[in-house]
Design a binder for these strands. Structure first.
Lengths: 117, 117
DNA sequence: CTAACATGTGAACAACTGTTCATATAATCA
DNA sequence: TGATTATATGAACAGTTGTTCACATGTTAG
């Protein structure tokens, strides 16, 4: 940030600035939070979560449902697996995925109803 | 999607697939939903929302708080304005921003506490 | 064993996005 | 009026990301 970009309002509002700085969550917390939201910021992943929220589905099922390639779905599932938002069960060649817990769909449902008009 | 990418599991799981397809929210809804989540998927925007959730702040204040340039903040504020997540009030040269309503911070708070461990 | 198939994964590519920079606009002050 | 300052905004650039493609792995059937 260059010198010219610093506003002079700073001194006037220093009290509000100081207060806001203190109330701001730690960088680590914000980063973790936004990282999770970003995962929900992709239609494909939201659809996958919706699809596996009520029943067990294998990768090909999900691909068929979303009209996508199994490869694309597999890539997205890895992200959801890493976050432990979905769990999986192998059965022969197939791998069945389910929602790890109801928290995520609750969040989505709540978002639909309240926060996001 | 090429022929080779279509799985043969389809016929076996056709019932589950059909059911999942019906339960899936409309594309329009999912798109709108994930679009909003994407906005929260950026640390800068989350920080801005936190900052203006308790007090009125001008662009330079926010820039100072987040250690960013006023220009970068202004760009992000436009996105938040378009979504009507923040409201603003002009006073001379300064433009003061506040949270439009408590729904968004509620969502974030809830996410911190419940859905997102 | 070999062929077929479901899934996983790395590389490559295209599309998107946040920041910076330059500049415009609007308001205040000398 | 002219200078300064706060904010807005378009273009450019760099970094990120989702999909596709090719291929590897592992399992089942013949």
């Amino acid at each position: 940030m260059l010198e010219q970009d610093i506003c002079e309002v700073e001194t006037t509002h220093s009290k509000a600035i100081q207060e806001a700085k203190l109330n701001l969550p730690r960088d680590e917390v914000v980063l973790k939070l936004s990282k999770r939201f970003k995962v929900l910021g992709e239609p494909t992943r939201v659809k996958i979560l919706f699809a596996v929220s009520n029943r067990e589905l294998c990768v090909c099922d999900i691909a068929e449902i979303l009209s996508a390639t199994p490869s694309a779905i597999s890539h997205q599932l890895r992200i959801l697996r890493d976050l432990k938002w979905v769990k999986f069960r192998k059965e022969g060649k197939l791998v069945y995925y389910t929602l790890a817990d109801k928290h995520i769909t609750n969040l989505i449902d709540m978002s639909v109803k309240h926060a996001i008009e």
